[in-house]
């Protein structure tokens, strides 16, 4: 821990990692809250895994065809937006079972990614960093893109907070009052996709769901307003991200995995603690009544 704080003042890569933690925590708090209250974890999971396809194609174009703009991050962003559009289009038509379509997006996206990675010459180590993330490798261009995505998510959420609330809580009311459920549903999917891309930088695409849902799920047990839930979830995910980096830094553990383990432990502690508190509280009350 102390090594982390000493090195934080010396090394730019650690400062970048902390900055990445702050940027992802904001998106994570806002969008994670939507994912949790709308119960769309599986949608987020499908988008996250599909992102591998975009990363694989981008890496192939970069190495084989020399397209320098095709970085894993741009590939991931495009793939996530494409996945969100497919999911939005299919759910709008209402003709297919939603979870079937999500499974298809999930698996086909990954398959495309694996194929392109295998035909691209070079080391496979990149693959591991896509799957599990590497917050210590985030550079300045990635940070800039993350800041832009964050800004977009914040502006959209401030402008359409009430519309998002209506279509998530009472879609039929929204429809009767002339609010397009489809448009706002698609917008929420879009910002979910962008957030997934941000989070893959930190914890990788496999662990994204945990960082997206657990801080928001904890926040929902503590507060009863959606915007408060977003703030609390953002604060919690900031603590877990920075905490995870700091804990993993000394013993050279993988940062992404440590962040998720820390988040998961806190989640279990909160649920267990609340359970014990309520049981004790009820017990004390019934005891008082009995005497």
């Amino acid at each position: 821990m102390s090594l982390f704080f000493t090195h934080l003042q010396q090394y730019a890569f650690l400062q970048h990692a902390v900055l990445a933690g702050v940027l992802t925590a904001i998106a994570c708090g806002i969008v994670g809250s939507y994912v949790v209250v709308r119960r769309s974890t599986y949608t987020a999971g499908a988008i996250a895994h599909c992102v591998l396809g975009g990363m694989g194609i981008a890496r192939y174009l970069h190495h084989v065809h020399g397209m320098t703009w095709a970085t894993p991050l741009t590939g991931a962003t495009l793939a996530a937006i494409l996945a969100a559009s497919i999911i939005a289009g299919v759910t709008a038509s209402g003709k297919q079972r939603e979870d079937t379509v999500l499974s298809a997006v999930w698996a086909v996206g990954m398959a495309i990614g694996i194929s392109f990675i295998s035909i691209t010459p070079g080391y496979y180590e990149d693959l591991l960093s896509y799957l599990f993330g590497n917050i210590l490798m985030v550079g300045m261009p990635a940070l800039r893109l993350m800041a832009v995505l964050d800004l977009f998510i914040i502006v959209i959420t401030i402008l359409f907070y009430n519309q998002f609330l209506a279509v998530s809580f009472q879609p039929e009311l929204a429809r009767l009052r002339g609010v397009s459920v489809q448009i706002y549903h698609t917008l929420i999917l879009l910002i979910t996709a962008l957030t997934v891309v941000l989070l893959t930088q930190v914890v990788g695409l496999i662990l994204v769901i945990a960082l997206l849902t657990l801080p928001a799920a904890m926040a929902s047990r503590l507060v009863h307003k959606l915007w408060l839930m977003m703030l609390v979830a953002a604060a919690l995910s900031l603590v877990f991200t920075i905490g995870g980096i700091a804990l993993s830094y000394g013993p050279e553990l993988p940062a992404g995995a440590t962040i998720i383990e820390l988040t998961g432990s806190a989640f279990v502690l909160l649920i267990g603690g609340q359970g014990l508190y309520h049981r004790w509280f009820r017990h004390a009350r019934s005891h008082r009544k009995g005497s």
């Binding site: 209250v37 009430n162 609330l165 998530s168 809580f169 009472q170 009311l173 929902s220 009863h224 307003k225």
Partner: peptide, 12 residues
């Protein structure tokens, strides 16, 4: 489990 207050429901 939806986090919303009575007043916010009315406002919708």
């Amino acid at each position: 489990a939806f986090p919303i207050t009575a007043l916010d429901v009315v406002l919708l």
